[in-house]
Design a protein around this nucleic acid. Structure first.
Lengths: 202, 202
DNA sequence: TTGTAACTATGAACGGTGTTCAGTAATTTA
DNA sequence: TAAATTACTGAACACCGTTCATAGTTACAA
């Protein structure tokens, strides 16, 4: 009889249900403002039930983060159909910033948080986060091959570009560029990216 | 009689005492892990007393943040004696990164934390944080006057440069550049800064 | 010196949090 | 159908930031 299989399936469904509810709430209200009780209420179970499927609130968030790295990478490779390496890099940067803006909580977890994740961080994320870094590195290598980034070695150019885009993204989502807003900022980022990468042309 | 003056002084002393205790605890354990009760315990008063001097935990944090900006600005202007605008900008960048590395908690407070500042942020910090931003902006203007940053307008060049340096600093203090270590990284940052700013020469 | 007004400090209490666990209800197995 | 396993509950625990009635202390005029 398939009881065991059904139970397995039901367990996964429940885990998914919790994940979905948690994601929605985290995105809407931020990690700190979402309680286990609220997640439980959303899926119409008691708070204790959550702990039968995840061992802590942090773990729920972490699993979502892991999925976020996947989603991030999936976004990144959408630049793949651009053949010109510099244009591809430009698009990559826009994707990076767009991801940060649309998923600030995930972005924080992936690139900004230090503290409580250290326990899990290395073991799980390293694979999936290195994928994105390597993707960028390959793109930069293509640029170098095409004559851009003269004077930079591969690693310096990669990290510099990452730092530039990352800096824009973090200043923005942390409201340090608040004088701008919406469309105005989109234009600015577009412009800043253009100029940074154009200046790599030489 | 100087009763009123003495009371005033005692009030300031108490505020300072709270600030010192809070700073020490925040630096050691992070904002979220420090409770009003712990601050109160450290200064050997009851929790309620804190609220006679500061209206919330967030406000205590905010005042510390304000002081950090002052300390940061004091570091920044040490680049003033350099006359060549590009060299000055380079030094400024190094100071920024050095400040981040040597005071990661303050740096986090000033540029990375989002948390409780929103309410007060504008009114008070704007002055002191704008001072640093304006300092950078003036430096960039000098560079533009000297023929650098061709194609950039002032604001774009300022924010771009900030983003680049800020990105390097945050990736570093958040251990995202962990493949490097110590001297190796110092050299890298030196090199990356050089290259970024050289490419502004044209 | 005394009485009162003003100030300072207290700590219990409120409504919230993440998490645990004894107990109950439902389901599966025999 | 009875026993055993599983799923779930929700009260309880130890925290949190914050408030406020109360108590203690100090200042100063009478």
């Amino acid at each position: 009889m398939g009881t065991k299989e059904r139970k397995e399936r039901e367990k996964l469904e429940m885990q998914q249900k919790i994940l979905d509810a948690a994601r929605e709430l985290f995105m809407k209200d931020g990690y700190e403002n979402v309680s286990i009780r609220k997640i439980a209420e959303k899926i119409e179970y008691s708070p204790g039930t959550i702990y039968l499927y995840y061992k802590s609130k942090g773990q729920i968030f972490f699993v979502l983060c892991f999925l976020a790295f996947d989603a991030f990478y999936a976004e990144q490779i959408k630049a793949d159909d651009i053949t010109d390496p510099l244009e591809k890099l430009k698009e990559s940067g826009k994707i990076y910033i767009r991801f940060a803006v649309e998923n600030p909580e995930y972005f924080e977890l992936m690139f900004l948080m230090k503290a409580p994740l250290e326990d899990y961080y290395d073991e799980i994320t390293s694979d999936v986060s290195h994928k994105s870094f390597d993707y960028l590195k390959e793109n930069i290598q293509e640029c170098i091959n095409a004559g851009y980034f003269k004077g930079y070695d591969l690693m310096t150019a990669t990290i510099s570009t990452w730092a530039f885009v990352h800096g824009l993204a973090s200043l923005y989502i942390k409201d340090r560029l608040k004088k701008m807003s919406g469309k105005e900022l989109d234009d600015f980022i577009e412009n800043a990216l253009d100029l940074y990468l154009e200046s790599a042309k030489k």
